[in-house]
Design a protein around this nucleic acid. Sequence first.
DNA 1: TTGAAAGCGCTAACAT
DNA 2: ATGTTAGCGCTTTCAA
Lengths: 337, 337
Amino acid sequence: MTMKDVAEYSGVSISTISRVLNNHPDVREEVRAKVLKAIQDLHYVPNSSARDLVKTQSDTIGVVVRGVENPFLTSVLRSIEEAIREAGYTMVIHQIGTEEDEVAEGASLVRSKRLCGLILLGGRFDYTPEETVSIEVPFVCCTYTNSFGSLEKTAYSSVYIDDYAEAYKAVKLLIEKGHKKIAVLLGATDDHSISELRYKGYCDALRNAGIEVDKSLVEQTRGYSMKKAYNATERLLARRNDFTALFTVSDSMGIAAIKALHNAGVKVPDDCSVIAIDGIEVSKYTIPALTTLKQPRKPMGYETVRILVDVIKGKKNCQLRLKTELREGETLAPPKR
Amino acid sequence: MTMKDVAEYSGVSISTISRVLNNHPDVREEVRAKVLKAIQDLHYVPNSSARDLVKTQSDTIGVVVRGVENPFLTSVLRSIEEAIREAGYTMVIHQIGTEEDEVAEGASLVRSKRLCGLILLGGRFDYTPEETVSIEVPFVCCTYTNSFGSLEKTAYSSVYIDDYAEAYKAVKLLIEKGHKKIAVLLGATDDHSISELRYKGYCDALRNAGIEVDKSLVEQTRGYSMKKAYNATERLLARRNDFTALFTVSDSMGIAAIKALHNAGVKVPDDCSVIAIDGIEVSKYTIPALTTLKQPRKPMGYETVRILVDVIKGKKNCQLRLKTELREGETLAPPKR
DNA sequence: TTGAAAGCGCTAACAT
DNA sequence: ATGTTAGCGCTTTCAA
């Protein structure tokens, strides 16, 4: 079933079919109707390979995401998908594992599928100009920006929250409640990731309040699974049982940590307050509901696509910083001791 | 950057490049090495549109999923993706909204991308032969089967759990604990969906235990979001406050229901037991941890792909029924009253 | 073992 | 307003 079949069926040439398909103006209404009917009758669907081949670039935007199992990224992905569709583009998702490199994978995807743009959803913070040139098309980093890298501002776009400042804000909330012994659960303190930035925010919030950072209150999960967060909390508890508050870098970690605290007989929030960053849906329904700084997931996805489309159409690259909003749950209380 | 460039760079013809790319045997080792080097030097990546165009079918498997926001489906998707990659195929995901029709979308995708096979992840249970012929390639229903439809067994494949029997099992567990007033939370009782099947299992488990089905203990959420489940539980509680156990058709609903019960002062499991079906990760970490029948998500994804690939290669269609496994949480107790 | 050449289905420039 | 035709980059006969 090709354009040729449709052409024969409706008694016109294939160029006319093409014109109808692409909404070109110069087709007689009568002919257009006839062709449309033929397309319907034959259940004709254009071959996108042929279409992409002849236009040396497609209308396809690639999204490279490291692991769809992350519920936060999943919900951003959802809004990216909506936005791409609304903008009239097609999306192709490419999932990668923890070890794979999103830039290399993305660059390969661009060439292979002749993408017109690329979205990196949850990636490294330290790209170099050398590696990103290989991407060749406009790209935007979604949920993060090039904090540790050496990219020119004009070379990429990003939509992100200020991880340092937001973590600072979260910890400050704990301090304002009266907490002094505040533990933190994070991926790692020195991996050039979101964790490192948020760790800095944690440290500075403490220092600016005159509290010294105590390394034995810092626990690294070495991964983002709930299981690892649970185990890390157990390690933390084995070492220290006197902290009155806990800051976790993600909601998932927060939920797992609360469970570990609970199982160890530590009541949240009475014995220990907990605050996190993300604001995924399920953490509204945990008991107690998690207090968290909610990332604007929907705007994040929509703005990412808007900026990408703008850059594709010739506008300048830009970095857009979004703000979180406190979603009050039930995990905050003043310290008892 | 095309094969032509690589050909010129390495001083051979494009057919030779093609042979190297496709691992054809008759290429001199020396020439093969030269070509491979050229490909590396030039960072050449084949244009998949051109490749797909010439081979009238691609090595691409399409996955149509209704809403990635469903955490259960998301984790099945993850294993499908792994399995497809391991089998040497490429995956294209197509998300659809609640109102769209997966069969029509899938059929269109097949023609548009010349797919060699299709996976429907979470779809309707009532396909007719007339609509599925349009799919044209082998397809498998993942997480469900054609319980309400009229498809011949030879016309499709599926990998699923026995929703009726598993719901029966869940409710039986509650009955064995001594419960008699058992409420149920589901999407709808008559929508030809997973909810309807599980509702039947609920009814029969009660009847076989000599308990009459009480309609006022049946609450329909009319959707699968946590918010709707929460609100439905509130409606249920407003109507009845004497049930001692609750069966929910999904983990997400179960978590939301527990929250609603908790907020209404009903203690889980002391005042009310809860059991669900799915076994997603987060429900291990809620307080109390949800008792649930865990679906074999990983095997489900892998078996789906294995069967699809088999059918693509000429084997017969088949329906594979998997079993759940009880994951004991902390939401089951005998009734107090 | 290698090269030349004919399409795969489509778009767009050109011709009518 | 409509038809003819030259590719887009690749695979695959067929010839050498």
